[in-house]
Every structure is written in C-alpha cells, then in structure tokens.
C-alpha cells in the first residue's frame, strides 16, 4: 500500500501563475529582441544603401561641382571633428567643475537644485539652443567673435548640449569614489581641494572620459543646433574655426533632399560614417567605464 504519487503538475491558481510568469518573461525577451533587432535593421539598411558610395574619394575629396559626379565629404569629416573637439574643450572643464562642486562642496539643497537644472538642460530642445546661440553670437558680435556663422558658434551650441551629459556622468563616478579614500587623505592632513585634485579626480578619470566620449558621440550627430550657427560651407577642407564649416549631420540633411541619386547615396554613406562613429565611441566609453568600476571595486 503506497500513498498516491504527488503530482508536480501545476493546477488551478498556481497554473495560472505559471502562465503569467511565462508570458511576462516571454514579453520581456521579445521587447529586448525588438530593441536589438531595430538597431540591427537600422545599421544594416543604412549600410546596404551606403555601400556603393563608400569609396576612397568619398573620404578624401570635397563635394563635386554642381552637375558633376563623384566627390566626397572630406570637408564635412574635418568640420565635424573640429566642431566636437572645440565643443568638448568648452564643455568638459565646465562640466567637470560643476560635478566637483555638486558632489564635493555644495550642500544637499543646492546640489539637488543643480542636478534638476542640469536634467532640464539635458532635455532642452536642441533647435532652441541653436536659435539662442544664433541670437547671442551669430547675429550680434560677442567677445570679438561672431557676426557670422563659425565653428566657434556651432561648437558653443554643441557644448551646451554636451554640458549636462558630461557633468551628470562625472557626478555619478565621483559619488562612486569610496568615502574611505577621502578620509584617508584627510587623516594625512591633506586639504580638501588637494584631496579632490590628487585623490578623487584621478580615481574617477575613467568615468569622466566615459561621460565625455558619450557626450561627443551625441554632439557629433546633432543637426538642429548647427543649422543657424554653422551651416554655410564652402567646397574645400577648412581648419579655421573662425569661419563656418561643413559637418556630417548638415551634409546628410542637405544631400537627402537632393534630386541627384548619387548625392542621396552619399547621404546614406555619411549616415553610416556617423553611426559607426557613435557605435565605436560608445563601445570605447563602455570599456573605460568597466575598467574604472573594476579599479574602484578593488579599493
């Protein structure tokens, strides 16, 4: 005589719970697949359309004279490089200083306010920033620069976009720096500013670089702030930041409207270059962040 075997099969309420669980997990997996799939489709379709235009000339030559074939986007590549480098030179020091102030010196009330305003700035419509900079330094003379479109004006607009990104990420890493490190420093009689400069900043440099890289990737793809500030361009490569240059996003914008199919192809190719740049910089940022996390974990 043995007891009837206990069935492990779910019944009744537990059966329903099991289904709900599976449905939820399935839905989550599907959503993740859609996100990854979207990215794959996006990159794939851009590459498919860009492929024919990705020639050596495309990277080394200026745009063809009207009605002629060939040509490339070399001035736009140089222009975007200049724009983001100068924008980073403006945004990074200010952004890092804000982060240091907020996480090391400010009291809780002030730092909460600053965080809020940075988030507002982060969500600010980029076209408004473009118009603001236009009114400030393109339409009027400002500190001796301006009264016409220039790399400085475009970079200033991009810097405003980069600023909250740089300082928010920097705040995050600064808060990861263990309290013990600072305390050890104070215990040795080191002053506060010296601690920040020699202990806190070097420890979090990886995170700061990450924030900067992500901000650069974001700024490189911005079109709206440049339309009013840096969109008049010649046909040659230009390294002078006091005049306006071609840039990749503005080139995509104008070429995509062209009736010339060759230029449409170049717009796709330029889009691919931009995507590749964003992917590479994001990956680089990720690796840097991982390294700095590991290092902080060791402490």
């Amino acid at each position: 005589m043995s007891a009837p075997p206990i069935s492990l099969k779910a019944t009744g309420r537990s059966r329903r719970r099991l289904f709900a669980d599976r449905a939820a997990v399935g839905g989550a997996i599907l959503a993740a697949l859609i996100a990854v799939g979207m990215l794959a489709i996006l990159v794939g379709s851009v590459l498919a359309r860009a492929f024919h235009s990705l020639t050596w000339d495309f990277f080394t030559k200026g745009p063809a004279v009207f009605g002629q074939t060939g040509g490339g986007i070399a001035p736009a590549l140089v222009g975007t490089l200049l724009l983001v480098l100068i924008a980073a030179a403006m945004a990074v020091p200010v952004g890092v200083l804000i982060a240091i102030f907020v996480s090391e010196f400010a009291n809780r009330k002030v730092s909460a306010q600053i965080r809020l305003w940075l988030d507002v700035l982060n969500g600010f419509p980029s076209i408004v920033i473009g118009i603001f900079v236009f009114a400030l330094i393109v339409k009027t003379k400002f500190l001796g620069i301006g009264h016409h479109q220039s790399v400085y004006a475009g970079s200033f607009a991009l810097a405003i976009i980069m600023l909250p990104l740089v300082s928010r990420t920097t705040m995050e890493v600064l808060s990861l720096v263990p309290r013990e490190l600072r305390e050890a420093s104070y215990a040795l009689g080191v002053s506060k500013w010296r601690t920040v400069l020699s202990v806190v900043l070097p420890t979090s440099i990886g995170g700061i670089v990450t924030g900067t890289t992500l901000a650069v990737a974001r700024a490189a793809g911005e079109t709206a702030p440049l339309l009013f500030t840096c969109s008049i361009a010649g046909q040659l490569i230009n390294w002078d930041p006091s005049i306006s240059v071609a840039s990749i996003p503005v080139t995509i914008f104008t070429y995509s409207e062209s009736p010339d199919t060759a230029l449409n192809g170049q717009a796709w190719a330029a889009a691919f270059v931009l995507i590749a740049f964003v992917l590479l910089t994001s990956m680089f940022a990720r690796i840097m962040l991982e390294r700095s996390r590991r290092k902080l974990g060791r402490v």
């Binding site: 004279v65 016409h148 479109q149 046909q235 002078d240 930041p241 306006s244």
Partner: peptide, 26 residues
C-alpha cells in the same frame, strides 16, 4: 587646429540666398 587656423590668410566670403544661382556660384 589653432596653429592651422592662425596660418589661414585667404579672404573668406560668406554668402547665402538663391538656390537658382547656386550651381553657378559652385
């Protein structure tokens, strides 16, 4: 970049307007 910019000595003329004449300007 700054050095290259400083070496820049040519006159830059910025213009904007008609798309009608743009091919000729180019």
């Amino acid at each position: 970049v700054g050095v290259a910019g400083a070496k820049h000595s040519t006159v830059v003329l910025n213009g904007a307007g008609s798309t009608f004449v743009q091919p000729l300007v180019s």
